[in-house]
Protein backbone atom coordinates (compact mmCIF):
# COMPACT_ATOMS: atom_id res chain seq x y z
CA UNK A 1 0.00 0.00 0.00
CA UNK A 2 2.96 2.28 -0.57
CA UNK A 3 1.24 5.47 -1.66
CA UNK A 4 -1.91 4.75 0.28
CA UNK A 5 -0.06 5.09 3.53
CA UNK A 6 1.97 2.77 5.70
CA UNK A 7 -0.33 0.04 7.01
CA UNK A 8 1.55 -0.31 10.27
CA UNK A 9 1.13 3.37 10.95
CA UNK A 10 -2.60 3.14 10.14
CA UNK A 11 -2.93 0.15 12.45
CA UNK A 12 -1.26 2.07 15.29
CA UNK A 13 -3.24 5.22 14.75
CA UNK A 14 -6.51 3.27 14.71
CA UNK A 15 -5.95 2.59 18.41
CA UNK A 16 -6.69 6.22 19.02
CA UNK A 17 -9.84 6.35 16.92
CA UNK A 18 -11.12 6.10 13.38
CA UNK A 19 -8.68 6.38 10.53
CA UNK A 20 -9.21 5.91 6.79
CA UNK A 21 -7.85 2.97 4.81
CA UNK A 22 -7.52 3.50 1.08
CA UNK A 23 -7.78 0.47 -1.15
CA UNK A 24 -7.12 2.41 -4.36
CA UNK A 25 -4.76 0.55 -6.64
CA UNK A 26 -5.36 1.62 -10.18
CA UNK A 27 -4.46 4.61 -12.31
CA UNK A 28 -7.80 5.85 -13.50
CA UNK A 29 -9.01 9.44 -13.79
CA UNK A 30 -10.44 10.09 -10.31
CA UNK A 31 -9.85 12.66 -7.58
CA UNK A 32 -12.90 13.53 -5.43
CA UNK A 33 -11.24 12.15 -2.27
CA UNK A 34 -8.64 14.89 -2.53
CA UNK A 35 -11.24 17.65 -2.67
CA UNK A 36 -13.32 16.34 0.18
CA UNK A 37 -10.47 15.93 2.66
CA UNK A 38 -10.37 19.08 4.76
CA UNK A 39 -7.05 18.03 6.34
CA UNK A 40 -5.12 17.58 3.14
CA UNK A 41 -4.42 13.96 4.05
CA UNK A 42 -5.18 12.81 0.50
CA UNK A 43 -3.44 14.35 -2.49
CA UNK A 44 -3.91 13.30 -6.12
CA UNK A 45 -2.12 16.22 -7.68
CA UNK A 46 -2.24 17.68 -11.14
CA UNK A 47 -2.61 14.45 -13.04
CA UNK A 48 -6.07 13.14 -12.38
CA UNK A 49 -5.00 9.60 -13.27
CA UNK A 50 -2.32 9.44 -10.55
CA UNK A 51 -2.92 7.31 -7.47
CA UNK A 52 -3.80 9.31 -4.36
CA UNK A 53 -0.97 9.87 -1.86
CA UNK A 54 -2.36 9.39 1.61
CA UNK A 55 -0.84 10.51 4.86
CA UNK A 56 -2.64 8.73 7.73
CA UNK A 57 -0.94 11.10 10.11
CA UNK A 58 -3.21 13.88 8.94
CA UNK A 59 -6.45 11.83 8.97
CA UNK A 60 -9.04 12.68 11.62
CA UNK A 61 -11.41 9.88 10.66
CA UNK A 62 -14.21 12.18 9.53
CA UNK A 63 -15.29 9.63 6.93
CA UNK A 64 -16.08 12.10 4.17
CA UNK A 65 -13.75 10.29 1.80
CA UNK A 66 -15.58 7.03 2.52
CA UNK A 67 -18.85 8.65 1.48
CA UNK A 68 -17.51 10.21 -1.71
CA UNK A 69 -15.27 7.48 -3.16
CA UNK A 70 -16.91 6.29 -6.41
CA UNK A 71 -15.04 3.02 -6.18
CA UNK A 72 -16.23 2.38 -2.62
CA UNK A 73 -12.56 1.70 -1.99
CA UNK A 74 -12.14 3.61 1.26
CA UNK A 75 -13.29 2.58 4.73
CA UNK A 76 -12.58 3.55 8.35
CA UNK A 77 -10.88 1.44 10.94
CA UNK A 78 -11.29 2.22 14.63
CA UNK A 79 -9.51 0.06 17.25
CA UNK A 80 -10.12 2.31 20.21
CA UNK A 81 -12.77 0.12 21.85
CA UNK A 82 -11.58 -1.59 25.01
CA UNK A 83 -12.85 -5.09 24.13
CA UNK A 84 -10.17 -5.51 21.48
CA UNK A 85 -12.37 -5.82 18.40
CA UNK A 86 -12.27 -3.69 15.29
CA UNK A 87 -14.91 -1.14 14.45
CA UNK A 88 -15.28 -0.56 10.72
CA UNK A 89 -17.26 2.05 8.82
CA UNK A 90 -18.15 0.99 5.29
CA UNK A 91 -20.35 2.35 2.52
CA UNK A 92 -23.57 0.44 1.98
CA UNK A 93 -26.04 0.73 -0.88
CA UNK A 94 -27.91 -2.53 -1.18
CA UNK A 95 -31.64 -3.08 -1.30
CA UNK A 96 -31.99 -4.76 2.12
CA UNK A 97 -32.33 -2.22 4.90
CA UNK A 98 -29.73 -2.19 7.67
CA UNK A 99 -30.18 -0.62 11.08
CA UNK A 100 -28.28 -0.44 14.34
CA UNK A 101 -28.36 -3.69 16.24
CA UNK A 102 -28.62 -5.90 13.14
CA UNK A 103 -26.37 -8.91 12.77
CA UNK A 104 -24.81 -8.72 9.32
CA UNK A 105 -22.51 -10.84 7.21
CA UNK A 106 -19.02 -9.47 6.84
CA UNK A 107 -17.67 -10.26 3.36
CA UNK A 108 -14.09 -10.31 2.15
CA UNK A 109 -12.90 -9.01 -1.21
CA UNK A 110 -14.10 -12.17 -2.98
CA UNK A 111 -17.55 -11.98 -1.45
CA UNK A 112 -16.88 -14.88 0.90
CA UNK A 113 -18.57 -14.44 4.27
CA UNK A 114 -15.99 -14.18 7.07
CA UNK A 115 -18.73 -14.39 9.66
CA UNK A 116 -21.19 -12.11 11.36
CA UNK A 117 -20.66 -8.67 12.75
CA UNK A 118 -22.89 -6.37 14.73
CA UNK A 119 -24.09 -3.03 13.41
CA UNK A 120 -23.34 -0.22 15.83
CA UNK A 121 -24.86 2.61 13.87
CA UNK A 122 -25.89 3.72 10.42
CA UNK A 123 -25.79 7.20 8.97
CA UNK A 124 -27.05 8.57 5.70
CA UNK A 125 -24.12 9.06 3.38
CA UNK A 126 -25.51 12.37 2.17
CA UNK A 127 -28.74 14.31 1.82
CA UNK A 128 -29.24 13.49 -1.82
CA UNK A 129 -29.93 9.77 -1.72
CA UNK A 130 -30.64 6.77 0.47
CA UNK A 131 -27.21 5.19 0.70
CA UNK A 132 -25.66 4.57 4.12
CA UNK A 133 -22.44 4.52 6.04
CA UNK A 134 -22.61 1.45 8.23
CA UNK A 135 -20.46 1.08 11.32
CA UNK A 136 -19.99 -2.49 12.39
CA UNK A 137 -18.01 -4.32 15.08
CA UNK A 138 -16.01 -7.33 13.94
CA UNK A 139 -13.22 -9.46 15.46
CA UNK A 140 -9.85 -7.80 15.17
CA UNK A 141 -8.41 -10.42 12.81
CA UNK A 142 -10.93 -9.41 10.15
CA UNK A 143 -10.05 -5.73 10.44
CA UNK A 144 -8.15 -5.55 7.15
CA UNK A 145 -10.18 -8.19 5.34
CA UNK A 146 -13.74 -6.97 5.48
CA UNK A 147 -14.84 -5.18 2.31
CA UNK A 148 -18.59 -5.17 2.71
CA UNK A 149 -21.48 -5.98 4.98
CA UNK A 150 -24.69 -7.65 3.87
CA UNK A 151 -28.01 -8.80 5.26
CA UNK A 152 -28.41 -11.30 2.47
CA UNK A 153 -25.61 -13.31 0.90
CA UNK A 154 -26.16 -14.49 -2.65
CA UNK A 155 -26.48 -18.18 -3.09
CA UNK A 156 -26.14 -18.86 -6.76
CA UNK A 157 -24.62 -22.32 -6.93
CA UNK A 158 -22.11 -23.56 -9.44
CA UNK A 159 -22.82 -23.76 -13.19
CA UNK A 160 -23.56 -27.26 -14.39
CA UNK A 161 -21.08 -29.07 -16.56
CA UNK A 162 -22.45 -29.93 -20.00
CA UNK A 163 -21.20 -33.10 -21.64
CA UNK A 164 -20.90 -33.75 -25.34
CA UNK A 165 -19.49 -31.47 -27.96
CA UNK A 166 -21.44 -28.42 -28.87
CA UNK A 167 -22.07 -28.26 -32.59
CA UNK A 168 -21.92 -24.84 -34.22
CA UNK A 169 -25.55 -24.11 -35.01
CA UNK A 170 -27.01 -21.55 -37.33
CA UNK A 171 -28.76 -18.55 -35.87
CA UNK A 172 -30.43 -15.30 -36.83
CA UNK A 173 -28.44 -12.19 -37.58
CA UNK A 174 -31.21 -9.81 -38.58
CA UNK A 175 -34.04 -10.15 -36.09
CA UNK A 176 -36.54 -7.97 -37.93
CA UNK A 177 -36.33 -9.70 -41.28
CA UNK A 178 -35.36 -13.03 -39.72
CA UNK A 179 -32.28 -13.56 -41.87
CA UNK A 180 -29.92 -16.21 -40.57
CA UNK A 181 -26.18 -16.03 -40.52
CA UNK A 182 -25.90 -18.75 -43.16
CA UNK A 183 -28.34 -16.92 -45.42
CA UNK A 184 -26.38 -13.70 -45.00
CA UNK A 185 -23.18 -15.56 -45.77
CA UNK A 186 -24.70 -17.03 -48.90
CA UNK A 187 -25.39 -13.52 -50.08
CA UNK A 188 -21.95 -12.35 -49.02
CA UNK A 189 -20.49 -15.17 -51.09
CA UNK A 190 -22.18 -13.72 -54.18
CA UNK A 191 -19.47 -11.12 -54.13
CA UNK A 192 -21.24 -7.89 -53.31
CA UNK A 193 -18.74 -5.24 -52.56
CA UNK A 194 -20.50 -3.24 -49.89
CA UNK A 195 -22.82 -3.64 -46.95
CA UNK A 196 -25.31 -1.48 -48.85
CA UNK A 197 -25.47 -3.97 -51.70
CA UNK A 198 -25.71 -6.88 -49.30
CA UNK A 199 -28.65 -5.22 -47.64
CA UNK A 200 -30.44 -4.52 -50.89
CA UNK A 201 -30.51 -8.17 -51.86
CA UNK A 202 -30.55 -10.08 -48.61
CA UNK A 203 -32.78 -7.63 -46.70
CA UNK A 204 -30.55 -7.70 -43.61
CA UNK A 205 -31.08 -4.41 -41.87
CA UNK A 206 -34.10 -3.50 -43.98
CA UNK A 207 -36.70 -4.22 -41.31
CA UNK A 208 -38.47 -2.06 -38.80
CA UNK A 209 -35.25 -1.23 -36.93
CA UNK A 210 -33.47 -0.32 -40.20
CA UNK A 211 -30.26 -1.94 -39.02
CA UNK A 212 -29.77 0.45 -36.12
CA UNK A 213 -29.63 -2.57 -33.94
CA UNK A 214 -27.53 -5.01 -35.97
CA UNK A 215 -25.33 -2.86 -38.18
CA UNK A 216 -22.12 -3.11 -36.16
CA UNK A 217 -22.50 -6.88 -36.02
CA UNK A 218 -23.26 -7.05 -39.75
CA UNK A 219 -20.17 -5.01 -40.55
CA UNK A 220 -18.07 -7.52 -38.61
CA UNK A 221 -19.78 -10.51 -40.20
CA UNK A 222 -19.55 -9.18 -43.72
CA UNK A 223 -15.96 -8.03 -43.43
CA UNK A 224 -14.99 -11.49 -42.17
CA UNK A 225 -17.00 -13.30 -44.83
CA UNK A 226 -15.77 -11.10 -47.66
CA UNK A 227 -12.17 -10.71 -46.40
CA UNK A 228 -12.47 -6.96 -46.47
CA UNK A 229 -11.58 -4.28 -43.99
CA UNK A 230 -14.49 -2.63 -42.31
CA UNK A 231 -14.03 0.76 -43.86
CA UNK A 232 -14.23 -0.94 -47.25
CA UNK A 233 -17.41 -2.72 -46.26
CA UNK A 234 -18.87 0.61 -45.26
CA UNK A 235 -22.12 1.43 -43.53
CA UNK A 236 -25.73 1.47 -44.64
CA UNK A 237 -26.79 4.59 -46.42
CA UNK A 238 -28.65 6.65 -43.87
CA UNK A 239 -31.96 8.03 -45.04
CA UNK A 240 -34.60 9.96 -43.17
CA UNK A 241 -36.27 9.35 -40.83
CA UNK A 242 -33.75 7.90 -38.37
CA UNK A 243 -36.64 7.03 -36.06
CA UNK A 244 -39.98 5.62 -37.18
CA UNK A 245 -42.48 8.43 -37.48
CA UNK A 246 -46.16 8.38 -38.32
CA UNK A 247 -46.86 9.23 -41.92
CA UNK A 248 -49.54 11.66 -40.79
CA UNK A 249 -46.98 13.65 -38.85
CA UNK A 250 -44.65 13.83 -41.84
CA UNK A 251 -47.66 15.10 -43.75
CA UNK A 252 -47.97 17.95 -41.30
CA UNK A 253 -50.62 16.68 -38.89
CA UNK A 254 -50.24 17.62 -35.26
CA UNK A 255 -50.48 15.46 -32.19
Amino acid sequence: MGESGDIDEIWRRAEGGAVAILDCREEIPCDPCEAVCARGAIVVGKNVCDLPRYDPGLCNGCGRCVAICPGMAIYLLDRSSRDGGARLTLPYEMKEEIKAGDEVWALDEDGSPLGKGKVVKTAKMNKRDHSLLVTVDVPEEWALKVRGVRIRVMSIGEPLEVRGCQREEDHLLCRCEEISRSQAREYAAMGFNSLRALRRFSRVGLGYCQGRFCQAMLVDEFSTAAFRDREGVGVFKVRPPVRPVKLGRLGGENG
Binding site: V245, K246, G251
Partner: peptide, 30 residues
Protein backbone atom coordinates in the same frame (compact mmCIF):
# COMPACT_ATOMS: atom_id res chain seq x y z
CA UNK B 1 -30.79 12.94 -51.52
CA UNK B 2 -34.29 13.02 -50.15
CA UNK B 3 -35.68 16.43 -49.27
CA UNK B 4 -38.00 17.71 -46.57
CA UNK B 5 -40.29 19.23 -49.19
CA UNK B 6 -40.77 15.94 -51.00
CA UNK B 7 -41.11 13.84 -47.84
CA UNK B 8 -43.81 16.17 -46.60
CA UNK B 9 -45.54 16.38 -49.98
CA UNK B 10 -45.55 12.62 -50.57
CA UNK B 11 -46.95 12.00 -47.09
CA UNK B 12 -49.63 14.67 -47.39
CA UNK B 13 -50.57 13.51 -50.85
CA UNK B 14 -50.81 9.84 -49.84
CA UNK B 15 -53.18 10.65 -47.01
CA UNK B 16 -55.42 12.39 -49.53
CA UNK B 17 -55.90 9.06 -51.29
CA UNK B 18 -55.68 6.58 -48.41
CA UNK B 19 -56.56 8.38 -45.16
CA UNK B 20 -55.78 5.37 -42.96
CA UNK B 21 -52.19 5.38 -44.06
CA UNK B 22 -51.46 8.31 -41.75
CA UNK B 23 -51.23 5.89 -38.82
CA UNK B 24 -48.46 3.83 -40.38
CA UNK B 25 -44.88 4.45 -39.37
CA UNK B 26 -42.53 5.66 -42.05
CA UNK B 27 -39.24 3.86 -41.49
CA UNK B 28 -37.27 5.09 -44.45
CA UNK B 29 -37.22 7.26 -47.50
CA UNK B 30 -35.06 6.97 -50.55
Amino acid sequence: GTTPEAINAIAKNAIGFLPWIKDLDVIRSF
